[in-house]
Design a protein around this nucleic acid. Structure first.
Length: 569
RNA sequence: CGGGAUGUGGCUCAGCUUGGUAGAGCGCUCGGUUCGGGACCGAGAGGUCGUGGGUUCAAAUCCCGCCAUCCCGACCA
């Protein structure tokens, strides 16, 4: 270890807020090169390699084959798929010396589709599943939290090509099962959740979330096993109608009132009893009013599902449509406005809404009598306390780190890029595709988020950079000789072992060992050696076991082997 | 992109309000004493004070621009 490049930090770098980020830096596993861009030092790289190996084993086990695709990709392919214009500034673009356009791959659907369409022509060659482990680059608006949201990151991405939906479903299920096993082998507490497919496209998708308070995703889950990302969750929103029978509609002056909170407090009613109206526009420029319960958030993803292509208005749009921000409502909106309302409002017969006139609100507005709802749709962000859409029980909430995601892409890319095969009837059809990603570097951070304490990292043995560290606590010749002997014997027994032969005091060695988080520490001290024993410390439990010197190697080896078995394939 | 903050030896920070010699702790080098939970003593090396401009006799300090980094939000895997 005296020659190991693992510069540990005693003090916490200011830039790091999260445990995983802080500990990766302090333990000498990563260093930042630029915002969201990191170097992996030897220890960090060893752990990355461990994760990669687990992923490889699981991919190979379901018949996916490893290959390597280019990071720098020609623009033509992205223009073909349509994503050159759609992807936006997150796609890092560059030109070569001849002025030709390229991009840094944020994902590899285009390149693999282009590869396969030239090689596979017959249904007899299907299905095919291919994967790579490679660097991705996405020019994130806001990189943060170290490896959790980097711009450059390591990802395993697999792509599968099928003749029909059934074949895709089979492989998708196999990938999902493999992802579950990967999480288990990384010792992650996780949940597969219903998700939105975002930029990648497709319809059926599942995200694998490592549960952690530091996670950026909000989840809801039910005891029945159903769980979802709130951005996609279609929960049953419970709502007690404010009035069970219709009342007269009434108009009230509400000078200066612009928000639901102000409205509710001015009239002494709960926000729940009001209806919030947000404004958006379709790609054609049609005005859309979106009504949700006053105490709920509009989910833009769901709004987009209800009205494809909808964008919420900015302040300029409000001026252009000449509508009063803060006093919108479904009653007498501008001519041609589409009114969409959340389904939870369906039985509500008395709405408190804006009057579409600055400084006025309406109470007792009744759908069907006072206004028309053009479309009822699920619009709100799900939250704990809502009802499970499967069984109706109350949902709980959690936060999660998205470590992986599986998608059924269907024919989105194969159609756009003309990737077709000939089926058994001699007809040309586009491939039915799936894609499946594991954030390798993000998983490393997720493991640490779930496995650490005040002193440092507590690796599961499956991800630890090395399994055992020998700590000779003295420069006494006998101690050194014994420690080196154990080191050689353990290495010969197949244990990944490092010896801390640095000229440091015991306290420094202990502190660094706990910080780096070696699963086991074998402590060789002068006192113990005199008594014929060494100590064996388990990082996770803190337990120390005294073993006689002749038994030390065998005992340690057995422990390592049994611990490995917990995470074996 | 909006809001907030920060930028001073390798790291963590003080100094800036009120302009005038660039500091501390840790780390590093050398010597000595120590040696089972981040030791002690002594000596030493190491800094364009993010950057460009301005004000001034004089700028780390005051003013303006730019850059970088972090946090919150919007966005997203």
């Amino acid at each position: 270890m005296s020659t190991l490049y693992a510069p540990t930090l005693r003090e916490v770098p200011v830039e790091a807020e999260l445990a995983s980020h802080r500990l990766l830096l302090r333990a000498g596993m990563i260093r930042k090169a630029a915002s969201g861009i990191y170097s992996f030092l030897p220890l960090g790289w060893r752990s990355i390699a461990k994760i990669e190996d687990i992923v490889r084993q699981e991919m190979d086990a379901i018949g996916s084959q490893e290959l390597l695709l280019p990071v720098v990709q020609p623009a033509e392919l992205w223009i073909e798929s349509g994503r050159w214009t759609v992807y936006g500034p997150e796609l890092a673009r560059l030109k070569d010396r001849h002025g030709r356009d390229f991009c840094l791959g944020p994902t590899h659907e285009e390149i693999i589709t282009a590869l396969v369409r030239n090689e596979i022509r017959s249904y007899r060659d299907l299905p095919v599943s291919l994967y790579q482990i490679n660097v991705k680059f996405r020019d994130e608006v806001r990189p943060r939290f170290g490896l959790l949201r980097g711009r450059e990151f390591i990802m395993k991405d697999a792509y599968s090509f099928h003749a029909d939906q059934q074949s895709l479903q089979e492989h998708y299920d196999a990938q999902a099962r493999a992802y579950g096993r990967i999480c288990e082998r990384l010792d992650l507490v996780y949940r597969p959740v219903v998700a939105d497919s975002g930029q990648i496209g497709g319809s059926v998708t599942t995200e694998f979330m490592a549960l952690a308070d530091a996670g950026e995703a909000d989840l809801v889950y039910c005891e029945c096993g159903w769980a979802a990302n709130v951005e996609a969750a279609s929960a049953v929103v419970s709502r007690d109608p404010r009035s069970t029978s219709p009342v007269e509609i009434s108009r009230h002056a509400t000078p200066g009132i612009k928000t639901i909170a102000e409205l509710a407090s001015a009239f002494g009613i709960p926000e729940h009893d009001t209806v919030k109206t947000m404004a958006g526009k379709t790609p054609e420029g049609r005005l859309v009013y979106l009504c949700v319960p006053g105490d709920r958030e509009l989910n833009p993803v769901k709004a987009n599902t209800a009205v494809p292509g909808i964008e919420l208005l900015d302040d300029d749009d409000f001026d252009r449509f000449r509508i009063p921000k803060g006093s919108l409502g479904p009653v007498n909106p501008p001519e041609g406005t589409m009114v969409v309302a959340d389904t939870s409002l369906r039985d509500e017969v008395s709405w408190a809404v804006g009057a579409n006139e600055d400084g006025f609100h309406l109470f007792g507005a009744m759908p069907g009598r006072d206004f028309t709802v053009d479309l009822w749709a699920d619009l709100v962000v799900a939250r704990p306390g809502d009802g499970c859409p499967i069984c109706g029980q109350t949902l709980s909430g959690a936060r999660g780190i998205e470590v992986s995601q599986v998608f059924q892409l269907g024919t989105k890319y194969s159609e756009a890029m003309g990737a077709r095969f000939t089926d058994e009837n001699g007809e040309e059809r586009p491939f039915v595709m799936g894609c499946y990603g594991v954030g390798i570097s993000r998983s490393l951070a997720a493991v640490i988020e779930q496995h650490c304490d005040e002193s440092g990292i507590i690796w599961p043995i499956s991800v630890a950079p090395l399994e055992v560290a020998i700590l000779p606590l003295s420069d006494d010749d006998e101690v050194i000789a014994l420690a080196e002997g154990i080191w050689k014997d353990l290495a010969a027994a197949g244990v990944e072992v490092v010896i801390d032969d640095r000229d440091e005091r015991a306290g420094v060695k202990f502190a660094d060992a706990d910080l780096i988080g070696w699963p086991y520490q074998l402590i060789v001290g002068k006192r113990g050696v005199a008594d014929g024993v060494v100590e064996l410390k388990d990082r996770a439990t803190g337990n120390r076991l005294t073993v006689s010197i002749p038994d030390a190697v065998e005992h340690m080896t057995e422990l390592v082997i049994s611990e490995r078995a917990r995470f074996a394939h």
